[in-house]
Design a protein around this nucleic acid. Structure first.
Length: 510
DNA sequence: CTGGGGACGGGGCCC
DNA sequence: AGGGCCCCGTCCCCA
């Protein structure tokens, strides 16, 4: 047993994990079920009888939760079954399906024959065991359609909740994780996340997503949390539906793949063979990295700090975290006494000494020491100033985009495009560029020719040799007066949006 | 809004 | 192949 380093007199809470507890608990409950011990509920289906524990059934099934009044918000009396041993007739679920569902409830593993998949799915649906229903539906090839036709409310909510900041695929995946994985894929009875990682699949009870000879074993998970962004392409979906063997469906963590596609594409070593995540379909590069990635789906955090109880998905993260307790700061600044936990902290810090601000906003030219600060700046509204008034003089030269560019502002004819907010955003065709909202073209639906962006980009390149080539994908189009000094006789309040500030040598409009 | 610290996930390299 | 270690990019939070 590890000793816990604590300062004298400290009386902090210590969390000592027992990762095996959940599976052992489940295993013992299952043994009780098999021997009929402490069973207080008997399920029947077409004559077959299945002694169970109502607490287990309530934990695993929405139907029984409601039946027993155990659902959150229920008063605990209405519709509840008495405390004695009761019998619940479930003829609508076939004996085989019920048996499989009970097996799942007590082992976190669904063992079924392919031919019985639909019955199990329907039974799971009826009993409100959603993860099983979803898993079966996916295997039956109905997931894609279902997902398209009727997106889950929870997905929609999560998506909506994060919609403001979802900027790119990564963000969406993140948003998905944030909204979905606080409740990771887990068996309802599991205190800890039930194993879906390969390591834990070795557990005889829990594990294994293995393709049986005739049957199929699924770990208690499901792919229902598949993020929208990561929905596989039609080909991939088709592939996963029909072409692949059953055992390599998304629940099979041994799915590997992409044979040939990435392997031959310049990867130097076999150990770098990418593997495809069975849940999000993401290609994970690097040998042995898939289990690590899978923990982002399962929520499993096997590495816990014995000093403060914080848990991590990865050992290396825990190791870095431990530096906080040991006081180790292995990255000293050569210019000052500052020391840092992370190399990148030192890197950031060094930019303070040097005064380097290599990350410049392509719009307002404000420079930042950190790239993420620039991204934040651009995502916010701080450089999305716009002018809603129209120029008094209609620029005739707009037919020649490069000529319209002055001071980083693209001149547009008044009949062109202006959102209700008076700003226009568009994205360049740069896959690597920072993401942004799609173009706001709501005024007359005038499409935005990409040539304008290229013109803008060209302008930026030409404007100054000092300027870094920007990866900007987001910019504003502002109405620009012909002469900066020229005063507009129109609304005074809008004049404030035209003040000039300086960043470095560049004068911009604010 | 910005600067800074920290957490998290992915990829590369190595054993 | 699996895993440790490291670096990097990104995001979140707080001051």
């Amino acid at each position: 047993m590890k000793t816990v380093a604590m300062s004298p007199g400290e009386d902090g809470l210590i969390g000592i994990p027992f990762p095996e507890h959940s599976s052992e608990l489940l295993s013992r409950l299952n043994a009780q079920r098999r021997s009929g011990l402490l069973c207080d509920l008997t399920l029947t289906s077409r004559g077959a009888r299945y002694p169970t524990h109502r607490s287990v059934m309530a934990a695993v099934s929405l139907y029984f939760r409601r039946l027993f009044g155990a659902e959150e918000g229920a008063d605990g009396t209405e519709g509840s079954v008495g405390t004695g041993c009761s019998v619940c007739q479930l003829d609508c679920v076939s004996p085989d399906a019920l048996d499989a569902l009970l097996e799942f409830a007590y082992t976190a593993t669904l063992t079924i024959r392919s031919s019985g998949m639909r019955e199990v799915m329907e039974g799971a649906q009826l009993l409100g065991i959603q993860c099983v229903a979803d898993a079966c539906r996916h295997i039956l090839g109905e997931a894609g359609e279902a997902g398209k036709e009727a997106p889950r409310p929870v997905d929609e909510d999560g998506y909506r909740a994060q919609s403001r900041r979802k900027q790119d695929r990564r963000n969406v995946a993140k948003a998905w994780r944030n909204t979905q994985t606080p409740e990771p894929i887990r068996h309802p009875l599991s205190e800890y996340e039930l194993p879906t990682s390969p390591k834990q699949q070795e557990h005889p009870q829990n594990g294994a997503t293995r393709g049986g000879q005739q049957g199929l074993v699924l770990n208690g998970g499901g792919d229902r949390q598949q993020p929208q962004e990561d929905v596989p392409s039609e080909e991939e979906e088709e592939e996963s539906r029909g072409e692949r063997p059953v055992s390599s469906l998304p629940f099979d963590l041994t799915v590997q793949a992409e044979a040939g596609r990435s392997v031959g594409g310049g990867r130097k070593r076999k150990s770098q063979t990418p593997q495809q995540c069975p849940v999000c379909q993401k290609i994970i590069h690097g040998a042995g990295k898939l289990p690590r990635h899978m923990r982002t789906h399962t929520g499993e955090k096997p590495f816990q700090c014995m000093a403060c109880g914080v848990r991590f998905t990865r050992n290396d993260k825990l190791k870095i975290h431990m530096r906080k307790h040991t006081g180790e700061r292995p990255y000293p600044c050569p210019s000052c006494p500052a020391r840092f936990l992370h190399s990148y902290d030192l890197k950031n810090h060094l930019s303070l000494h040097s005064g380097d601000r290599p990350y410049e906003c392509p719009l307002c030219h404000k420079a930042f020491a950190r790239e993420d600060h620039l991204q934040r700046h651009r995502k916010g509204h701080s450089c999305l100033e716009f002018r809603t008034r129209r120029p008094r003089k209609v620029p005739e030269e707009h037919s020649s985009p490069p000529d319209q560019l002055q001071h980083g502002t693209l001149r547009l004819p008044p009949t062109s495009v202006c959102s209700s907010a008076g700003q226009l955003l568009f994205q360049q065709d740069n896959p690597g560029a920072a993401p942004c909202r799609p173009a706001l073209l709501d005024s007359g639906g005038v499409s935005y020719p990409s040539i304008l962006w290229r013109a803008m980009e060209g302008h930026h390149r030409a404007a100054s040799m000092e300027e870094r080539e920007s990866s900007a994908s987001l910019t504003n189009i502002m109405w620009e007066e012909e002469d900066e000094e020229e005063e507009d006789e129109e609304d005074g309040e809008e004049e404030e949006s035209c003040t000039q500030i300086k960043y470095g040598d560049r004068r911009i409009r604010e």
